[in-house]
Design a protein around this nucleic acid. Structure first.
Length: 215
DNA sequence: GACCAGGTCCTTG
DNA sequence: CAAGGACATGGT
């Protein structure tokens, strides 16, 4: 059976969140300072996280793992460090644009930290190369704001779990059933990705037993 | 060799 | 506004 009302979708989402929390407990996710989170958020677009880690290592080795360093760096140097993440030319440009936005437009991370979440989100979305997922990743993991991240894995798991809400409705759905606590948002999204990476393939559920893991 | 990966932007119909 | 293509390396 599948949910048809928003109340049923919310109940399903709550149940799934609880199941995943019991299954995974506390897990580490996206460590690093705000600059590193923002850089990683761009690099992970359509890319495996393991490749992003490699690129972050190279950036650190070359003293390029900060937005101020990226502002001053030459494009080819950035490209060479992040090549392993794919789409490296466009991502290098996006890093430059983001770095300029943070340092020049905003006046630095400490200033951004004082901006209300919705306003900050709109600002980020106005940056070329930053869409909803990247913006919410930056807000959630970089600025500890309760802005839930919806990625392809969240979408897959929701489908596997029988949630009928379409992608655009998932963010408000999850935010409505979670405590407004950045740590809860971090862990919940981490749990979803950990589970869906293994069990929910692109088009169909591959033996996903999310609703059978006890309810 | 085919297919996919923690998206986003731009161009068409 | 939906659909399609471009961006690109690396792993299974």
């Amino acid at each position: 059976m599948s949910a048809s009302s928003s109340a049923e979708n919310a109940a399903l989402a709550k149940k799934i969140v609880g199941i995943l929390k019991r299954r995974f407990g506390e897990i580490p996710w996206w460590p690093g300072d705000t600059d590193e989170v923002m850089i990683g958020a761009i690099l992970t677009q359509q890319t495996r996280w393991e490749n992003v880690e490699q690129a972050l290592r190279l950036l650190k080795e070359r003293n390029l793992c900060s937005l101020s360093a990226l502002c001053a760096a030459d494009l080819p140097d950035i490209e060479s460090a992040i090549r392993c993440t794919g789409f490296y030319r466009i991502k290098a440009r996006r890093l430059k644009v983001l770095a300029a936005f943070v340092t020049d437009t905003c006046g630095g991370v400490s200033v951004m930290d004082t901006i209300p979440t919705e306003e900050l989100r709109e600002g980020l979305l106005g940056v070329n190369g930053i869409g909803e997922e990247t913006a919410d990743s930056i807000l959630c993991y970089g600025f500890a704001r309760p802005s839930f991240v919806i990625d392809s894995y969240t979408e897959r798991l929701a489908r596997c779990g029988g949630i009928t809400t379409h992608r655009s409705g998932l963010k408000p759905l999850f935010e409505s059933i979670l405590a407004e606590d950045p740590h809860v948002y971090h862990q919940t999204h981490a749990h979803i990705v950990e589970y869906a990476k293994e069990w929910c393939t692109k088009k169909r559920c591959k033996g996903c037993r999310i609703m059978a893991l006890n309810g």
